[in-house]
Every structure is written in structure tokens, then in C-alpha cells.
Amino acid sequence: MIRSGVTGQRLAALFLLGCLLFNYPLLSLFTGRGEIFGIPVLYAYVFAAWALFIGLMALAVEKRGD
């Protein structure tokens, strides 16, 4: 299996980013009232961040060799 070092490093960096995104204190920014398109901000934030995170991982894994 071709294991280019850069992909692993990107994923590790993503892991750290994820730890930030889904934890205190970033989460606490979205705990208040407020809505986006009728959806509570906390719910919207977590799912948007989650989707973004998955997208970035897909990008890191699938775009190899550059």
C-alpha cells in the first residue's frame, strides 16, 4: 500500500482540528439562542462542522500523490 507521508500528516492535522471543532470552548460559542433557517445554531453548527470534517477527510484521502 502506498502510504504517502503527507496524507497521514493531513489526516493527523484534521484530527486535531476535529478535536477543536467538537469540544469546549468552540462548542460553547453556539449554545445560545438563535436560529439559522429555523434550525437552532448548536444543531446546525455541529452537523455543518461534521459534514465539513468528513469532506476534508475525503479530500485528504482521495487526493493522494500530489
Binding site: L11, F15, L42, Y43
Partner: peptide, 24 residues
């Protein structure tokens, strides 16, 4: 607990990023 059910799925999502090293 509202979105308190989510960490159980966010954890594996985060871990998946480390699979490249650990799981392999």
C-alpha cells in the same frame, strides 16, 4: 439530553482520521 447523543458518533469520526496510522 439534546445533542448529547452525538459524541458517540463524533468520537469514531475523529478516530477515523487517525486510522491511517493506528488501524493500519
Amino acid at each position: 439530553s439534546g445533542i448529547g447523543f452525538l459524541p458517540i458518533y463524533l468520537g469514531p469520526t475523529l478516530m477515523a482520521a487517525l486510522w491511517w496510522y493506528v488501524m493500519l
